Simulated scan of single mutants.
Amino acid sequence: MKNSIYPLLLLFLLASCEEVIDIELPTSEPRLVIDAIIGYNQNNGDPITIGQVKLTLTAPFLQDEIPPAENATVTIIDEENGQSFPLVESDPGVFQNGFPDLEFDREYTLIVNYDGETYTATQQLIPAPVISSAVQGDGFLFDEEEETEVVITFTDTPNERNYYLFSFGFDNFLVVDDEFFEGSDITFSYFYEDVEPGDLLTITLLGIDKNFADYVDLALVQSGESGGGPFATPPATVKGNILNTTTPENFPFGYFNLSEFDTELLTVE
């Protein structure tokens, strides 16, 4: 976890003293961070399930590298039939293979066993509409020379409250709540900076629930301008929906989410 900035300020104020003063920064036991984001797409009748479960540990304030949580086992259980799907670790702390073929209206449970403790969360697959179009525009917000407009259109799913997560690449995300446009055709602009003709832009729309929408909003605020988006470890870690069933007070950070998604590719002109 990140340590307080105040000891660093005190160190700065004492820098002019002749005597070197060593200040021991407070530390805390590292917590497990579980980022489990899994997507589903019908893929014209040939469904695909992709994503990853990434396990890391919280790190002290001055530590640049985020350590992976190694030697864990990760499993997904289909609660409809009890079938177990052990995931395969592709890199230290990263599991990208072995996902079940997801279906709507059924529950899936993530089980992570790490360092003698068990962490679990249960979710359903959240549907998403398709992106009707993503085309390059000629508008700009502040700087015509530095910005590239992309105009995106989709149709909101009617007769229900929906939440969506847009990923524009380059660690840029947008959470959308349909409270004021339920069932409507929606067109909006997103402005990229510093992209060049020939660059390939990837625009992804994911269906999410309110809990994950709130989580991402808070994570985006916490990550601020530090970069990395909401799925890197932010300056102040954000508790998600995963429980420690062995030692409840040693809860993890991160989130388990299942989303249908749609993706559009656009080459900058």
Rank of each mutant, 00 (worst) to 15 (best):
D64C: 01
L125Q: 13
A69D: 08
T153F: 02
P248N: 05
T56L: 05
V53T: 13
V112A: 13
G229V: 03
L265G: 10
N41G: 07
P47K: 01
N44F: 03
E179V: 14
E19P: 00
S167M: 08
Y164G: 13
N113L: 07
D214Q: 12
E144V: 15
S4V: 02
D217T: 15
L258D: 13
L125P: 14
I111D: 08
G254Q: 11
E146Y: 11
E65L: 07
V135S: 09
Y108P: 03
A72E: 06
N71I: 05
L110T: 04
Q63H: 03
T118N: 01
P197G: 08
Y255K: 02
I76R: 00
P197K: 12
G229H: 03
L206M: 15
E225D: 10
S189W: 12
I203C: 14
D105M: 14
T73I: 14
S184L: 11
N44K: 09
E264L: 14
I23P: 07
P197D: 11
P60T: 01
D171P: 01
T237E: 14
K54W: 07
S259M: 08
N241V: 07
A15K: 11
E196S: 13
E264W: 04
S189N: 11
P100R: 03
N211E: 15
F191D: 03
K239Y: 07
I23V: 13
F251W: 09
T148D: 07
G183E: 03
L8D: 15
L87P: 04
S16Y: 10
Q123T: 13
G198C: 02
N81Q: 01
G137S: 09
T58R: 09
Q96C: 03
D214P: 12
F140P: 01
L10Y: 09
G240T: 10
T246F: 04
N113H: 10
S84P: 00
G228L: 05
E179R: 15
I50L: 07
F168H: 06
E182R: 12
Q52W: 00
V33N: 01
Y6W: 13
A36N: 12
E70V: 12
I37S: 10
S223W: 03
V94G: 02
V238I: 11
A219P: 04
L243F: 13
I34E: 05
T187G: 06
D209P: 13
P127A: 02
Y6Q: 09
I21A: 00
P86N: 09
V216S: 10
S28A: 05
N241F: 03
F99Y: 06
N250L: 14
P67H: 01
F104H: 12
D101Q: 04
I186V: 15
Q63Y: 04
Y119S: 04
I66C: 11
P100V: 09
R31G: 02
G240C: 07
S259L: 06
G98N: 06
E144S: 15
P26Y: 06
F188C: 09
E89W: 05
L14E: 06
T267S: 11
S167H: 08
S184H: 09
S167A: 09
F168G: 08
V238G: 02
E79R: 10
N113A: 11
P30G: 02
F212A: 10
V130C: 01
F95V: 11
N172W: 04
